[in-house]
Design a protein around this nucleic acid. Structure first.
Lengths: 186, 186
DNA sequence: AGCTTGCAAGTAAATGCTCACATACGTTGT
DNA sequence: ACAACGTATGTGAGCATTTACTTGCAAGCT
């Protein structure tokens, strides 16, 4: 098998477990069973590899939010669809999404604010629901943060091994109820 | 002024902004306006310094939870007191608490699970409230994660500069309502 | 042949930490 | 009063090691 995907998996796994800075190119190469030089055939630097992996998760999440939220009407249905979609995606590639979740702050300087990142998308959805009177008025940035916190912290605790081995999807109904409760609480 | 507290402040600020691994002892020394060797008069290693700072926040948080929750009765009052106390503490030393929040996963291997860490304490409070029928039954680990997520994600987004310059306390009433909504939602 | 992909052995720079030395300061003996 | 001494604290040049990355070369594929 060619080296590129093996390097990607290996890097992802170590990045997720130990963080980008603590991950050496030697470790990645060893885990992928390639030489260190092979990494530099495909990426200019360790950081470019890390940013690439992060951004692929980031974009996938953005697209997922746009399509799932666009497919249904009403804030209740949107919330349910989004929670469900995130859980499914995370369960399908847990390494990628736990990496995205745990190492987010390492990449904040990188992604440009073009309004298409997950947080801003959710803020927009909430703002529209408020205009349609589906939700009580409030600061969409704070409401979005609280609602997303329900999901991200649950996923984080799962990553920390605090929730057992259940798939994240196992908690989707409960998380949906909690998210809706947050959105409507004042 | 003596070097130790200056080193602690300098280290805290850089750790919070850039992470432990990306922070060099040279940078800490420069910011504290002391020599690099001075650090090693007070700590055995960079990591011991980092762990010490993290643990001081961690312990302070645990004590805060125990005293605040012990001082009032009923889950509603406990939730309000805890949210309020966390916001106040975070506002008083934002550098320390944003460091604690953002770098948590770096220190997970360190702290022993003696049931006195913030998350476990909250889980216990929730469990007792369920036994007293103040809350509907459910997995306390998941409910605690979701409730804490409301607060931690809001604080995190503030740290990322997404919420403006308001103190965290400004959002305490809203967060309290949201936390209670999460606790009671099913 | 020409191009891509991989390897082994480098290299220069940076990092955490040490060590011999300097200075400040309280205590003790006279 | 005051010198002698021990201890705590701070300095900064320097060390061994590690790091990300490079380079010269070879093997496969089209």
């Amino acid at each position: 098998m060619s080296a590129k995907p093996r390097i990607e998996r290996a890097a992802l796994e170590i990045f997720a477990a130990s963080g980008v800075d603590a991950t050496t190119t030697k470790l990645i190469a060893a885990r992928a069973e390639v030489s260190e030089g092979a990494i530099y055939r495909h990426w200019k630097s360790k950081d470019e590899l890390a940013v690439g992996l992060f951004m692929s998760a980031h974009r996938r999440l953005s697209e997922l939010i746009e399509t799932e939220a666009g497919a249904v009407h009403g804030i209740d249905a949107k919330a349910a669809a989004l929670v469900r979609a995130y859980c499914t995606a995370a369960d399908e590639d847990w390494t990628l999404f736990s990496f995205h979740l745990l190492q987010l702050h390492h990449f904040l300087p990188y992604y440009q604010e073009d309004g298409r990142d997950p947080v801003t998308l959710v803020e927009t959805i909430i703002k529209h629901a408020m205009l349609k009177m589906e939700l009580p008025p409030g600061d969409p940035r704070v409401i979005a943060a609280m609602a997303l916190g329900v999901i991200s912290q649950t996923a984080q605790n799962r990553a920390y091994g605090r929730l057992g081995e259940d798939l994240l999807s196992a908690h989707a109904p409960l998380m949906t109820a909690a998210v809706l409760a947050v959105l409507k609480a004042r």
